[in-house]
Design a protein around this nucleic acid. Structure first.
Lengths: 235, 235
DNA sequence: TTTTTTTAATGATAAAAGTCATAAAATCAT
DNA sequence: ATGATTTTATGACTTTTATCATTAAAAAAA
């Protein structure tokens, strides 16, 4: 965790407009700008630790993270992802509970730390900001319901097919057309909720069936309609 | 859905103090009181319909509800429960999205409908109310993460044992010591995320092993430590 | 109460998914 | 680059869970 670029004022921040801070006035942004600290997390570094009480939130300037929970016998469950523009730790801050999950950088990630108090100060002054936070939390709650239903009712094969599509939607693709996120088979398994071997086997099957192209950790979706069909994805 | 008791002013409402409305001033409560409509839902009646856009929220004065989502081939997934003091539909209102799930009364339920606009008006005026809504949504989000991890990592047997304990914690027990909620085996299955037959079989096993007593839909937990052990419940 | 309908129970079987073991390949650190 | 380490791949086997079928019991309706 090293400092960088603390001089960039928030109102000039290029990602400001895609964050909940886009509801803030210039003055309110200056309050954030005066109290924020910019940091860089290396790939694999833990940004927040499950069970801890954070002193504020991080706003991702650039990078990708996973939010993950400890499950049975230490097995990791990946709950969701975060990327540029997303806020980290707000669930814990706003519910006044310890972190229900850890957050780890999936690649080198630049983020700004905003102290708890400044966040509450702005909530007090700016109801549009409050509403935006509620909107995000409530949207996530709806997503969680979908994930719960899928885990409860879909087979591993269905969930994996759907997850590949979700990963493309979430992170987009590289110039070569691969998913723009690098995950190990184990991480994919921890996301889908299955054993690593099952994930490997099913990915190999999808490859055999020409639905995807695999090159190490690079995954390219080449038959998305079929993946959607396998995954029972209708939207 | 029939009207009843619309004359009770909110500031006199016996459940007010356990709702998020406990943060409201007398004046603000009067705004709610003037715009609210009290209704009764019969057992089994659908209160809100997945996919619809609600015009407000319900505040449960007395009763029990299930929040459930349509899954694969019309199979119901129960996402969570609501009881006296809980607010229904706030997720959809605050995220400005259609209802991600339906809500059905598990028993005759009295509730007050609060129109959307009055809710937003108070959010605008009262940041304590906003914070309370955020607290609830963010708490639920943490719960959802726990459910996701359990669904992904625990066996059906573990999940059922844990769910029995959660049901007792959520709804309490009757004078005879039974869970104070009446669910069919199918509903329990739709909650645990398994086939109805599996639920029936496992409940019979738990009964054999003297962990629970079954009398029709009446369930009494008689060996909670053992259930907690089976369910890998540590808290 | 009695009938009708729904729900619960249980056996047999099939399918899905997990575990363990081992080898090959890819990634990482130096 | 290169050696060490981690990850991926695959086979063999076990366990878990779902599905289908049938009967019994309990709820609900007449």
């Amino acid at each position: 965790m090293e400092c960088n670029d603390n001089n960039v004022r928030c109102h000039q921040c290029p990602v400001k407009d895609i964050t909940s801070f886009n509801t803030l006035s210039k003055d309110q942004l200056d309050v954030i700008a005066d109290s924020k600290t910019c940091v860089v997390f290396k790939k694999g570094q833990i940004i927040m630790h499950e069970g801890n009480k954070p002193n504020g939130v991080y706003c991702i300037q650039n990078g990708k993270c996973k939010t993950h929970k400890l499950g049975i016998e230490g097995k990791e469950q990946i709950i969701r992802f975060a990327k540029t523009g997303d806020m980290l730790g707000y669930r814990s801050i706003l519910s006044d509970e310890p972190l229900s999950a850890s957050i780890t950088a999936l690649e080198d990630t630049h983020a700004c730390f905003v102290p708890r108090q400044e966040l509450f100060d702005i909530i007090d002054l700016n109801s549009r900001f409050s509403l935006e936070l509620m909107r995000i939390a409530c949207h996530e709650l709806g997503e969680a319901g979908r994930i719960i239903t899928n885990l409860a009712q879909k087979t591993v094969r269905e969930r994996l097919a759907e997850m590949l599509l979700i990963l493309e939607k979430t992170f987009g693709i590289t110039d070569e057309g691969n998913l723009d996120v690098s995950l190990t088979r184990e991480e994919i398994a921890n996301l889908v909720g299955t054993a690593t071997e099952s994930t490997i086997r099913l990915l190999s099957e999808f490859k055999e069936d020409k639905l995807i192209i695999l090159k190490g950790r690079k995954i390219k979706l080449v038959n998305k309609p079929k993946l959607a069909k396998i995954g029972n994805v209708f939207d």
